[in-house]
């Protein structure tokens, strides 16, 4: 069975690299993007199973990217958010209230991997039942 791809979008290189190591070590394929446009291109070509988006991104911000993902996907692509910002504009954003999960940086990435695993397992069960 092929590996499930996790799309990680963050403009901070070291964070992107560290999270990639963590997911690869946990048996996932990893797609990395540093901005929204690259992320959308990867979604179109590589079909990731889940997306983890930083909110403060250059160009399209994480919330707008999440909306575009919802619009463009012909299948459900779960989106998780992460941010180092605790401003009201982030914490009170309606997209965050509807999000599957939000991780305030710095966070324990092992918990993120566990959450991603359980979300994807849940989706796989729904598909197999369906």
């Amino acid at each position: 069975m092929s590996k499930l791809n996790v799309l990680i979008v963050d403009d901070d290189g070291p964070i992107l690299k560290a999270l990639s190591f963590r997911f690869q070590h946990s048996g996932f394929g990893v797609l990395c993007a540093k901005d929204g446009i690259s992320a959308l291109n990867l979604i179109a070509t590589e079909q990731p199973a889940i997306a983890i988006l930083d909110i403060n991104l250059p160009g399209i911000d994480g919330f707008s990217l999440g909306e575009k993902i919802k619009e463009m996907s012909n299948r459900v692509l779960p989106v998780l958010y992460m941010s180092a910002s605790k401003s009201d504009s982030v914490l009170d954003h309606p997209n965050l209230r509807d999000a599957l999960a939000f991780y305030e940086k710095p966070f324990n990435a092992k918990e993120l991997v566990l959450d991603v695993t359980s979300i994807l397992d849940g989706m796989a069960q729904v598909h197999s039942v369906g």
Partner: peptide, 22 residues
């Protein structure tokens, strides 16, 4: 706060990766 926490996230995760034996 955002600028301080961004490198902290990377520091935390790299430390954690080493501790976990990755």
């Amino acid at each position: 706060s955002h600028e301080l926490k961004t490198p902290l996230t990377a520091i935390r995760e790299y430390t954690s990766l080493v501790i976990d034996g990755i």
